[in-house]
């Protein structure tokens, strides 16, 4: 399976990938993107099985990435891993088709709880 990790912070992408392994999701192909625009291109060309995206990113933020992805008729499971999580953001995420919103910092158990429906 393929997992796309989109975050403008190289440090956070590294933590997400490390936590994926700690949560037991090994053997998957991990693809990284540093902003929403790059992630959108990769999502269309690589068709990952799960997208894990930050919210605040340059070029194109995570919400606009999600909206553009759905507008292009890709129904890839998509969730946010973000520092901020106001009720308004949760509502926007859900309304636009996000499956989950995980706040930083997170644990391997948080990942398992949200990713198990999508990953082996």
């Amino acid at each position: 399976m393929k997992i796309l990790v989109a975050d403008d912070s190289k440090a956070m992408r590294s933590i997400v990938i490390r936590t994926l392994r700690q949560a037991g999701y090994s053997g998957h192909k991990i693809i990284e993107a540093a902003d929403g625009a790059e992630a959108l291109g990769i999502a269309k060309s690589e068709e990952p099985d799960l997208i894990i995206s930050d919210w605040n990113m340059p070029e194109m933020n995570g919400l606009d990435f999600l909206i553009a992805l759905r507008a292009a008729e890709f129904d890839t499971p998509f969730g946010f891993v973000t520092t901020e999580a106001s009720p308004e953001m949760r509502e926007l995420a859900e309304k636009n088709g996000a499956a989950f919103l995980i706040t930083k910092p997170f644990t391997a158990e948080d990942f398992q709880r949200h990713f198990d429906p999508f990953l082996d």
């Binding site: 912070s9 190289k10 440090a11 956070m12 933590i15 973000t82 520092t83 901020e84 999580a85 106001s86 009720p87 308004e88 706040t103 930083k104 910092p105």
Partner: peptide, 20 residues
């Protein structure tokens, strides 16, 4: 990069205790 991400998380968590 690491210090930037750590302060981002600390700031985000403090922000969550403030006005919506």
């Amino acid at each position: 990069d690491t210090v930037g991400e750590l302060i981002n998380m600390i700031g985000g968590n403090i922000k969550s205790l403030l006005a919506e």
